[in-house]
Design a protein around this nucleic acid. Structure first.
Length: 743
DNA sequence: CAGCCATATCTTTTT
DNA sequence: GATATGGCTG
C-alpha cells in the first residue's frame, strides 16, 4: 500500500507522468492540490530527484506554505529546499541576486499601489499634465497593462506614433520607469518583467536557473499573464518538464492581465504535451455541483468538461430575497449563530462571499453587535494603513536611501515644521544637481533660500544617519522601537486619546509583533528581508484555519478555498454581475463574472445559501436591483423553496423613484423608535437584568442607554443609544449587555 | 505652516 | 457614505 493508492486513476496518471510538458485540467474540488503534493513526493521518493531541482509556483503565499507542509508530511525530508512560492516572491528572490546586471541595486524597494500612485502624481506634476483630463489611475492602468504584455516604454512609444493621446501615455510610461530606476524601486509588475529581462539578456543566469529547476509546476495556470508565461517558458525551455494545473472555468483575473490563451493553447505551444482531465469532484454535494454546472454551461468559450461526484445529493440550496442589505446581513448572521448553537457547525466552517469589499460593512456591524468572532479578508490592507506606512517609510529610508518616496513621506511626519515651500526648494536643488532627494537633504546648507528651514532638516538627517550606522548591530525590532521612541509617534497618538488614535496604536503594536515574528522565523533576518515580506503578503495569507471565526471575503479572494457552509451575498444584477460588465460592449466580460459565480458556488461543501436584497445603498444612494441573472440559471428544483417572483420589477418605475426619494429623506436604516415603547414598560418581565431606560455596557461599544426592548421571535431585540457609537439595535442573547449602576 | 471645512469623485475584483 | 483634495484662516 503506497501513498499513491488513494488517488483515482487520472490523479495517478498526473502524478506518474513526470517527464515533458503536462497540462492538468482540474475542475473545482477535484483534488489538484493533492495531485501536486503527491507529484512532488513522487519526484523525490520514486524518481530520486533532488528537491533542490523542483520549483512550484502557487497563487498565494498561503498556498505555498500549505504545499510545503503537505509535501513534508508525505516525504519527511527535503521539502525546505524546494522552491515553493508565488510568481512575485520567486522573481524577487532571483532579482535580489542578479538585478545588478540590469543597473539596479540589490536592495531595491518594492512599490505597492499606494506608492505607485504617489509617484505618478509627482510625474504628472513635473510633466505639467492636467490630472483633471488625464487621470493618474488611467496612466497606471495603461502601464500595468503594457507590462503584463511585456511591452517596453520604447515599444509603447513606437506603437503610439501618430496618436497624440497614446504618445502622452508613452511619455509618462518612460518617465515613470526612469523615476523607478532612480529611486531604486520596482513595482509589482516590474518584478516579473525585470526577471524576464534578466533571463533574456543574461544567458548565464538563465542557464543557471534552467539547470537548477529541472522540474517546474505551476498552479492556477489559467490566471497567468503573458509576462508570467514568458518567465515560465524561458525557465522550462531546456528540460521542458513543465506541469501546469488549471481550470479555464475558474479564470477570474482578466482585469489583471491574465491571458486565458495560456491555458487554452497550451497544447499548441507544446505539441507533445500530455493532457489529463480531473473531473471527479470530492468537495461538494450533488446539488451544489449541479447548480455550478448549470451556471457555467451558459458560457460559450470553454474547454468541454463535465464535473461529477459520488457524493450524496445533500441539502437543497437556500435562496433568500430581502428588502434591504440590512435584513440580508441580519439573516445571515442570525443563521450562522443558530447553526452554531444547534451544534451543526462551528464559526470557522462558515464563509460569507460577496462581489465587492464595500459589502463587508453591514456584516461587520452585525457580527460586532452579535459578539460573533469574524475575520474580514481584504479591503484595506494592514500595511496600507497610514500609521503603518509612515513607520515602514522610516525603515525603507534606512534600507534604501534612494527611495525618495519614503523620505518625502516622513520628512514632516511627525511635524518638524518643514512645509511645502521648503520641500520644493530641496526638490529643485536635487533636480538641478542630479541628486536624490535625501542626498540633497544631506547638503541642506548649500541649498539657496533655505534659510531657517535648514535648522529643522539637519536633525532629521542626523537621525536617519544614526539609525543607518546602527543597522549592522541592532535587530529590526530594536530599530523600530528606536524610531517610535525618537519620533514620539506613539506618544503623539496617546496624547490625541481618540478612538481612532487608540486603534492606530493597536496597529503599531501589531506591526511590532509582526517584526518580532519575522525575526524569529527567518534564519537570516534582515531589514530588506522584512520589507520584502511586507510588500508581498496578501491579506489572505494571514488567514488562520485554526482560529474559530466566520470568514468574510470577496469571491476573488475565495479562490482555492472551501467551506462547509457558504453564503453568496448580494446576488443582484448590477452588483453581481457588476454594472460595469452588464453595460460593457464586450460579452466576454459577463462570462468572466459567470466564472466568478462558478468559483463562488463551488467553494461550498455541504450548505449553500444565496441571498439578495431588493434595495441597497451604493455610494450613498439607494439602488433597486433584480435578483442576479446567475440565480435564474440555477434550476428551480435545486432550491429549497420555489424562488419567489421578483416584486420590485413589477412596480412601475415612477413608483420606485418615489420610494427612493422618500427613503432618501427618512433614512430607513436608522433606529426608528426613539420614544420608549408603550408595549413594554420599565421593569417588564423580559427575563433580562436590564430594562428600558437603564444604562448598559457592551463589550465593544461601551456604555449606552436602553431605549427599547422588543420581543422578536425567539429573542429580545434591544435598541441602545451608545455614547460613542450612536444608536444600535441588537439581539439580547448575543450582545451580552451588562447593566451599569446608576450614575 | 498647520488645521479646519467645503468639494469632488468614487468602485469591481488584487499580487 | 467615505475619502482625498483644495482653499481658507489663524
Amino acid at each position: 500500500m503506497s501513498i499513491y493508492d488513494t488517488l483515482n486513476s487520472q490523479q495517478q496518471e498526473a502524478v506518474f507522468h513526470t517527464e515533458g510538458p503536462v497540462l492538468i485540467l482540474a475542475g473545482a474540488g477535484s483534488g489538484k492540490t493533492r495531485v501536486l503534493t503527491h507529484r512532488v513526493a513522487y519526484l523525490i521518493e520514486e524518481k530520486g530527484i533532488n528537491p533542490w531541482n523542483i520549483m512550484a509556483i502557487t497563487f498565494t503565499n498561503k498556498a505555498a506554505g500549505e504545499m510545503r507542509e503537505r509535501v513534508d508530511s508525505l516525504v519527511g525530508f527535503g521539502s525546505e529546499s524546494i522552491w515553493v512560492s508565488t510568481f512575485h516572491s520567486t522573481c524577487v528572490r532571483i532579482l535580489r541576486r542578479y538585478i545588478e546586471r540590469l543597473g539596479f541595486d540589490n536592495n531595491f524597494t518594492i512599490y505597492d499601489s499606494d506608492d505607485q500612485k504617489s509617484l505618478m502624481k509627482d510625474i504628472c506634476k513635473r510633466l505639467q499634465i492636467d490630472t483633471k483630463i488625464y487621470k493618474e489611475k488611467s496612466f497606471l492602468a495603461a502601464i500595468s497593462k503594457a507590462k503584463d504584455e511585456l511591452i517596453t516604454p520604447e515599444e509603447f512609444a513606437l506603437k503610439a506614433e501618430g496618436d497624440f493621446n497614446q504618445k502622452k501615455y508613452a511619455c509618462v510610461y518612460a518617465e515613470y520607469q526612469k523615476q523607478l530606476r532612480s529611486n531604486n524601486a520596482l513595482d509589482f509588475d516590474d518584478l516579473i518583467v525585470k526577471t524576464v529581462d534578466l533571463f533574456q539578456t543574461q544567458p548565464d543566469v538563465l542557464e543557471y536557473y534552467q539547470e537548477r529547476f529541472k522540474y517546474i509546476m505551476i498552479d492556477e495556470y489559467q490566471d497567468t499573464n503573458t509576462a508570467q508565461f514568458q518567465f515560465v517558458s524561458l525557465l522550462s525551455s531546456k528540460y521542458k518538464n513543465l506541469c501546469v494545473v488549471g481550470d479555464d472555468d475558474q479564470s477570474i483575473y482578466k482585469f489583471r492581465g491574465a491571458n486565458i490563451a495560456n491555458i487554452l493553447s497550451f497544447e499548441k505551444v507544446y505539441p507533445t504535451a500530455k493532457v489529463i482531465k480531473l473531473e471527479q469532484n470530492y468537495r461538494s454535494t450533488q446539488n451544489i455541483l449541479d447548480a455550478a454546472n448549470q451556471v457555467i454551461c451558459n458560457n460559450t468559450e470553454r474547454k468541454d468538461k463535465s464535473l461529477w461526484t459520488d457524493n450524496d445529493k445533500g441539502d437543497k440550496i437556500e435562496l433568500q430575497v430581502f428588502n434591504s442589505a440590512y435584513e440580508e446581513a441580519e439573516f445571515i448572521v442570525g443563521d450562522i449563530s443558530q447553526k452554531v448553537r444547534n451544534g451543526d457547525l462551528e464559526y470557522k466552517d462558515c464563509a460569507i462571499l460577496y462581489r465587492t469589499n464595500a459589502q463587508s460593512r453591514m456584516f461587520e456591524e452585525k457580527f460586532v453587535i452579535g459578539n460573533i468572532p469574524y475575520k474580514i479578508v481584504g479591503g484595506v490592507n494592514f500595511y496600507a494603513r497610514k500609521e503603518i506606512k509612515d513607520l515602514l517609510a522610516y525603515l525603507k529610508t534606512i534600507d534604501n536611501a534612494r527611495d525618495d518616496l519614503a523620505v518625502r513621506r516622513i520628512i514632516n511626519v511627525p511635524r518638524r515644521g518643514i512645509g511645502p515651500t521648503t520641500l520644493s526648494r530641496v526638490q529643485d536643488y536635487a533636480l538641478d544637481h542630479d541628486l536624490g532627494f535625501y542626498d540633497a537633504l544631506k547638503v541642506v546648507d548649500e541649498i539657496p533660500n533655505i534659510g531657517r528651514s535648514a535648522v529643522k532638516i539637519r536633525p532629521f538627517v542626523n537621525f536617519i544617519q544614526m539609525l543607518r550606522s546602527k543597522l549592522e548591530y541592532v535587530s529590526v525590532t530594536e530599530l523600530m522601537q528606536e524610531i517610535i521612541e525618537e519620533t514620539g509617534y506613539v506618544k503623539e497618538l496617546e496624547a490625541d486619546n481618540t478612538e481612532e488614535a487608540m486603534q492606530r496604536i493597536e496597529n503599531i503594536d501589531e506591526l511590532i509583533s509582526k517584526i518580532v515574528a519575522y525575526e524569529e522565523e527567518s534564519e537570516t533576518p534582515t531589514l530588506s528581508g522584512f520589507l520584502e515580506e511586507v510588500a508581498l503578503v496578501a491579506d489572505i495569507d494571514n488567514l488562520d484555519e485554526d482560529s474559530n471565526h466566520v470568514v468574510l471575503m470577496t469571491l476573488h479572494s475565495a479562490k482555492g478555498l472551501e467551506f462547509p457552509n457558504v453564503y453568496l451575498a448580494g446576488m443582484e444584477d448590477g452588483i453581481f454581475p457588476s454594472y460595469m460588465t452588464i453595460v460593457a460592449d464586450d460579452p466576454t466580460e459577463i462570462e468572466e463574472e459567470r466564472r466568478l459565480c462558478y468559483v463562488g458556488i463551488t467553494r461550498a461543501r455541504k450548505w449553500l445559501t444565496i441571498t439578495s436584497a431588493k434595495q441597497r445603498m451604493i455610494r450613498g444612494e439607494t439602488q433597486y436591483n433584480k435578483v442576479s441573472r446567475f440565480v435564474n440559471e440555477i434550476p428551480r428544483q435545486l432550491f429549497a423553496k420555489e424562488p419567489q417572483k421578483e416584486k420590485v420589477s413589477e412596480v412601475p418605475k415612477n413608483l420606485v423613484y418615489a420610494a427612493a426619494k422618500k427613503n432618501f429623506h427618512s433614512k430607513p436604516f436608522e433606529a426608528k423608535p426613539i420614544a420608549p415603547s408603550k408595549n413594554f414598560g420599565a421593569n417588564h418581565s423580559s427575563g433580562l437584568d436590564y430594562s428600558e431606560g437603564d444604562t448598559v455596557r457592551h463589550m465593544k461599544f461601551g456604555e449606552g442607554k436602553v431605549l427599547q426592548i422588543v420581543q422578536g421571535g425567539r429573542d429580545y431585540e434591544v435598541t441602545v443609544a451608545f455614547e460613542r457609537v450612536g444608536t444600535k439595535k441588537m439581539f439580547a442573547s448575543f450582545a451580552k449587555l451588562k447593566k451599569c449602576n446608576a450614575i
